[in-house]
Structure formats: structure tokens, C-alpha cells
Write a protein that binds this DNA or RNA. Structure first.
Length: 268
DNA sequence: GACGATGTTGGCAC
DNA sequence: GGTGCCAACATCGT
């Protein structure tokens, strides 16, 4: 579920709610959802909550910290969490000294929380492994990356090592907005096309952020509220709907094993 | 009930 | 090293 706009929405809320909060205890309801020794974090106070790509980073007042990934169905809840206290898919509960709780809920159990013994080092390592945000990369740098690969352009922008934060929803909508066929080899794009694509990706991500993300399926923010980007998808999941530019019926194809929606008339 | 799909990522084979 | 496929798991729609 969560792509850059959703994770960033959650990050903002977690930051407001948790900075200054002292961790008292962890309740791990599903072992697979938690990595490392939770006792290392007991007594630590949250100093900051950062986002790198689709990862969340919790720094504390000591070296130790915690990283988390929501993968497909993860939720982090800090307000309106009554439902999560007894919910079937609540995997980890963190209790703070104030009595506040953080619930990590995840149906598919792909996501996780992980203790990082040296959170600063772990953050730098992750930053090195991941590509830049669409806002951190220049059109020139993005073009250079595209020229290096023959893979479909959609695969490339979903590859977090090249560009981080973009997932299937915003990749589909961005490619439509830029008028580029997702199946085109990345290296076949012109300078103008890569610049248009980067601009389009920034625009759809900004829009997603503004409306609180996409709650097409199970996404809710850290206050258990839905976003509304699903009400304004441009092409994502809109098989058969008229293209918003030319009325041509949108089609679904598979690119890199992922559902891909496009307008065969507008996207060349 | 079977089958295919689902927002992510990493491991593996070629 | 680039690239593509599939599994990890649970649920939902056809």
C-alpha cells in the first residue's frame, strides 16, 4: 500500500506524537514482524522520526534506534487505536511512559520493525543503498540513470535503488501524465521525455501527499484516517474507463509482473 | 472452492 | 552487472 505520500503522511504524524516519548515495553504478537532484541530499546526516548524512501526511521536519545517498513499492508497507528488493541492483525504494540501506544498492524506480515544498534550508521547505509527521492534528483541525473538501462521505464522507476519512494500507483499515474508508454526501454527516452516524467512523478506524489494518500485498499494514516487519492486515480486500476485526456478506453497490461494501466492513444 | 489479483522487496537463476 | 521471475502471507473478488 504505502508509497512515498502515504509513508510521509505517517511520518509527520508519528513525529508529532512520539518525539519525546519514552519507550516502556514491546508486545510482539507475531515474531516475524519484529527483528532484533526489543529490550535494547526499553527506556529510550524517541528523538526523531525520519523517512528514507518508503522506510521509517526512529532515532532515540542513544545509539540504538528502530527502522520499519510497511510493505503491502502495514499500518502504524498512534491515535484512535482502540480497534487495534484486540485486532487480529496487530503484530506489535509499543507502550510509552505516558501511556500512549504505537500499534503496528499488518495483515500480510511482509512488513517489520527492526532494532538498529547504531541507527545513524544504519540510516547512512540505507541512504547509500537507495536512490534519491524524485525531489532530490535533478532532471539531468534522472536522464543519465534512464540511459543506463534497457529495462521498461516503469520497472526502472519502481526500482528503489535507482529512484526511491515511487510505487505502482504513482508510477502508473505519472507515466500517463507524462504521456509515456510504461513498456518503453528506459534508454529510449529523450531528454525532454525524462524531464516530463520526473515532473509528472513529482506532481502526482505531491497531489497524493496533499490529499492524505491513497486508501484504495487497506491504507490508513497514523490517526486511523483514510486518504482520498483513490478518488482521483488517473489510470491506476481504471480498466475500461475513458482516458481523462482523449476518452480512449484505458487498458491493463502486465509489465514486470505488475498490473499496469495505460492509454494506448496518449502514451507513446 | 479454485483461481488470480493485491500497494513491496529481495533472493535466485540466467 | 542487468534483468526477469517468484516467494514471503492473508484476503478479496470473480
Amino acid at each position: 500500500m504505502p508509497e512515498l505520500p502515504e509513508v510521509e503522511t505517517i511520518r509527520t504524524q508519528l513525529s508529532s506524537a512520539l518525539v519525546g516519548e519514552k519507550i516502556v515495553s514491546f508486545e510482539i504478537r507475531r515474531d516475524k514482524s519484529f527483528r532484533g532484541n526489543p529490550k535494547e530499546l526499553s527506556g529510550r526516548t524517541i528523538a526523531s522520526v525520519k523517512r528514507i524512501g518508503k522506510y521509517l526511521f526512529f532515532h532515540t536519545d542513544k545509539w540504538v534506534g528502530m527502522v520499519g517498513h510497511l510493505k503491502m499492508t502495514g499500518r502504524m497507528i498512534v491515535k484512535n487505536g482502540e480497534f487495534y488493541q484486540t485486532a487480529k492483525h496487530t503484530r506489535v504494540v509499543v507502550t510509552f511512559e505516558s501511556g500512549q501506544r504505537l500499534y503496528f498492524w499488518d495483515t500480510r506480515v511482509f512488513g517489520y520493525l527492526e532494532v538498529t544498534s547504531d541507527s545513524k550508521l544504519a540510516e547512512v547505509a540505507l541512504q547509500k543503498r537507495l536512490g534519491a527521492d524524485p525531489w532530490q534528483i535533478s532532471p539531468q541525473e534522472f536522464h543519465t540513470i534512464c540511459m543506463r538501462y534497457k529495462r521498461p521505464i516503469k520497472n526502472l522507476i519502481l526500482d528503489q535503488e535507482n529512484l526511491s519512494g515511487v510505487g505502482n500507483i504513482y508510477a502508473n499515474d505519472g507515466l500517463w501524465k507524462a504521456g509515456i508508454d510504461p513498456r518503453r526501454p528506459a534508454s529510449s527516452l529523450s531528454t525532454i521525455e525524462t524531464e516530463k516524467l520526473l515532473t509528472a512523478l513529482r506532481e502526482v506524489l505531491e497531489r497524493g501527499l496533499l490529499v492524505g494518500g491513497a486508501s484504495d485498499n487497506s491504507y490508513v494514516d497514523a490517526h486511523n484516517e483514510k486518504g482520498s487519492y483513490q478518488d482521483e486515480f488517473l489510470v491506476y486500476r481504471l480498466t475500461g474507463a475513458p482516458c481523462k485526456k482523449c476518452q480512449t478506453s484505458l487498458t491493463r497490461v502486465v509489465v514486470g509482473g505488475r498490473g499496469t494501466w495505460l492509454c494506448s492513444s496518449c502514451q507513446k
